[in-house]
Simulated assay, not measured.
Amino acid sequence: MASGVSSIYTGSDLIHDYICSKCEEDDDLDIEAQHFCPQCENYLCDKCVRVHGGYYKKHTVYGREDIQKWAMVSLDKCDQHGDKLSVHCDDHQEFCCSVCVALNHRLCSSISHLSDLAKGFLKIAEFKQLPAAVDNLRRRLDELRMQE
């Protein structure tokens, strides 16, 4: 899901916060996105939003004025195939969908179902300490911000 992260246009110092998903996917272009469709989970440039609007008339598309609604990156879908992530390849240390397993991880020796890995996770000490650690980091960031 490289579409939602910053990138640098090849051969230029131009940096985009969000890249048009369709331009990047279809033409390998880094065109700045001006719109986001949460139903499709795609960032869209002005050209692609017109095409999208023709196909998906009932989709709600957010512009730059609603950028706070753009942070809807799906963490449970495969970047390559769009399928739900269901397993973890322990050999490669990566999450995979069933298509990834069939194509790229057939010979791997250790593949774990995510539901099995998640069992007991809420009881792990590190997980229980996470809220306090986040609060501590937030306080530290606030302190640093005030020093500026």
Results as ranks from 00 to 15, higher is better:
Met1Tyr: 12
Ala2Gln: 09
Ser3Met: 07
Val5Ala: 11
Ser6Val: 05
Ser6Tyr: 11
Gly11Met: 03
Leu14His: 06
Leu14Ile: 15
His16Lys: 10
Tyr18Lys: 11
Ile19Asp: 11
Ile19Thr: 15
Lys22His: 06
Glu24Ala: 14
Asp27Lys: 14
Asp27Trp: 10
Asp28Ser: 10
Asp30Pro: 00
Ala33Asp: 12
Gln34Cys: 05
His35Gln: 07
His35Glu: 06
Cys37Tyr: 00
Cys37Asn: 00
Pro38Leu: 05
Pro38Phe: 04
Cys40Pro: 02
Glu41Ile: 05
Asn42Cys: 04
Tyr43Ala: 07
Tyr43Asp: 03
Leu44Pro: 00
Leu44Ser: 00
Leu44Val: 00
Cys45Arg: 01
Lys47Cys: 02
Arg50Ala: 14
Arg50Met: 08
Val51Trp: 04
Val51Asn: 02
His52Glu: 06
Gly53Trp: 01
Gly53Asp: 12
Gly53Pro: 04
Tyr56Ile: 03
Lys57Gln: 09
Lys57Pro: 01
His59Gly: 00
Val61Cys: 11
Asp66Ala: 10
Ile67Tyr: 03
Ala71Leu: 15
Lys77Phe: 06
Asp79Trp: 08
Gln80His: 09
His81Pro: 00
Asp83Met: 12
Lys84Phe: 07
Ser86Val: 14
His88Leu: 14
Cys89Trp: 08
Asp91Gln: 13
His92Glu: 09
Cys96Pro: 01
Cys100Thr: 02
Cys100Gln: 02
Ala102Ile: 02
Leu103Arg: 15
His105Ser: 01
His105Cys: 02
His113Met: 07
Asp116Gly: 05
Leu117Trp: 03
Ala118Trp: 04
Ala118Asn: 06
Ala118Ser: 12
Ala118Glu: 05
Ala118Phe: 07
Lys119Ile: 04
Gly120His: 04
Gly120Ala: 03
Lys123Gly: 10
Phe127His: 11
Phe127Ile: 15
Lys128Leu: 09
Pro131Phe: 07
Pro131Ala: 09
Ala132Ser: 14
Ala132Leu: 04
Ala132Trp: 01
Ala132Glu: 13
Asn136Met: 07
Asn136Glu: 09
Asn136Tyr: 04
Arg138Thr: 12
Arg139Ala: 13
Arg139Tyr: 03
Leu144Lys: 06
Met146Leu: 11
Gln147Pro: 01
